[in-house]
């Protein structure tokens, strides 16, 4: 009934560039969503545990370290292990197109690069969650 879209925004690994994650978190908040922001230096295990406890609809990862393939794959695998198949895994950062396409073919959602308008991201999340949900 009053179910709001809940999104976990997390930064895995050691890179400290959290400006992008904060911009996205604020934009999704302003789009009327409930955004759980975990901050920097999260392990995939911490991210998936938080996603489970918070019962989110979406997990968004921000990766600027070049380790996107490892992080997205590991988080996706842990999500499946925990029964979170219905949760959308998306995100962004500096991700070459062929890597993004590879990850999408493995079950990750759309990945967004620099220059994306935040409203595009909010629309994508809304369509994915509402379309799938009921």
């Amino acid at each position: 009934m009053n179910r709001k879209i809940r999104v976990l925004v997390a930064k895995p690994g050691l890179d400290g560039h959290d400006r992008g994650a904060k911009v996205v978190a604020a934009a999704l908040r302003d789009a009327g969503m409930e955004v759980i922001y975990t901050g920097l230096h999260q392990t995939p295990e911490m991210i998936v545990e938080a996603a489970l406890q918070e019962d989110v609809d979406v997990v968004g990862l921000s990766v600027h370290s070049g380790a996107h393939l490892e992080f997205f794959r590991r988080v996706l695998a842990l999500m499946r292990e925990q029964g979170l198949e219905n949760v959308l895994l998306t995100g962004g950062g500096i991700i070459p197109r062929q890597d993004a396409e590879q990850l999408m073919s493995e079950g990750v959602g759309r990945l967004f690069g620099p220059g994306t308008h935040t409203s595009e991201l909010a629309d994508y999340i809304r369509e994915s969650v509402r379309g799938e949900g009921d």
Partner: peptide, 24 residues
């Protein structure tokens, strides 16, 4: 907007992985 930024987990990371703790 009806939106919210929930940021309290930022300070609770040290309990991650502990089955005796649940944070919501």
């Amino acid at each position: 907007t009806g939106g919210a930024l929930l940021g309290d987990r930022v300070r609770m990371g040290e309990h991650s992985g502990d089955d005796g703790v649940f944070v919501r």
